[in-house]
Amino acid sequence: MAGKKNISLLQKELSPVLNPGEFVFVTTKDSSIVNNGAAIGKFKEKEGFTLILERGKARELGLSYDYIASWITLSVHSSLEAVGLTALFSTELAKHEISCNVIAGYYHDHIFVAKKDADRAMTVLSNLAENKNKQ
């Protein structure tokens, strides 16, 4: 099933959802220390593997982290070929001094923001969907 590409439609249907929990980004040379079901995400970089884990799992494994994040899913089914969606929401978050780390999944975009910024980010994204942030 193909995702949506029209930026106006994507904006209207963002439907951000704050997932429960606390999440961290860790790095390791050996990604096998975490089974595939435990990692929210895994990406291979030349320095090693970046893993996104629930904070409790990282602590359980003795992995260090610097950043505690909240995970927001945009419920709209966006196409991987959609142009401008990431720029749209990341620019709006930046205007409110909210850093975001974005993962594009097949169906949805996932945004990781600092735990302390989660509620503000949800407000910004909800307002963006309602077109309230336009000046």
Rank of each mutant, 00 (worst) to 15 (best):
L74E: 13
E54T: 04
L9N: 09
G62V: 00
W71D: 06
I103H: 04
E54K: 13
L85W: 00
Y107F: 13
C100R: 02
G62E: 06
R59L: 13
E92A: 15
Y67L: 09
K116P: 00
A129Y: 00
V26T: 14
A2P: 15
Y106N: 06
S126T: 15
T73D: 04
L125I: 05
A38I: 00
I68F: 07
V17Y: 07
D119G: 03
H77F: 13
A39F: 02
A38P: 01
T91E: 13
T86I: 15
K95N: 14
V26F: 10
P20K: 02
I111P: 10
K116I: 11
K4D: 09
I52M: 04
S78F: 02
G48I: 08
N19A: 05
R55H: 01
G21Q: 05
M122V: 12
N19T: 06
C100V: 15
K134L: 15
E13H: 09
D30G: 08
A121L: 11
T50P: 05
N127M: 06
E54C: 03
T91W: 04
S15M: 11
L14M: 00
E22F: 02
L80V: 06
A118R: 06
T73P: 04
E81L: 13
F23S: 08
A94R: 08
N19S: 09
I98V: 14
F49Q: 00
V113G: 03
V124M: 05
A121V: 08
L74K: 06
S70L: 02
A82D: 07
A38Q: 14
G21R: 11
S70H: 03
I103F: 15
G84Q: 10
S126H: 12
A118T: 08
A2Q: 15
S8T: 05
L18Q: 07
L53A: 08
F49V: 00
L128G: 13
S32C: 06
R120T: 13
M1G: 07
S75N: 11
C100W: 06
I7N: 08
L9Q: 14
S31Q: 12
D119Y: 01
Q135R: 13
E54Y: 01
L14E: 04
G3F: 05
K4T: 14
V113A: 10
I7Q: 10
H110P: 12
Y107L: 14
E45H: 05
E45T: 05
S70D: 09
F112A: 11
T91V: 03
V26W: 05
N6V: 01
V34C: 00
A104K: 14
H108G: 04
T91I: 01
G21M: 10
G62M: 02
L128E: 09
S75E: 15
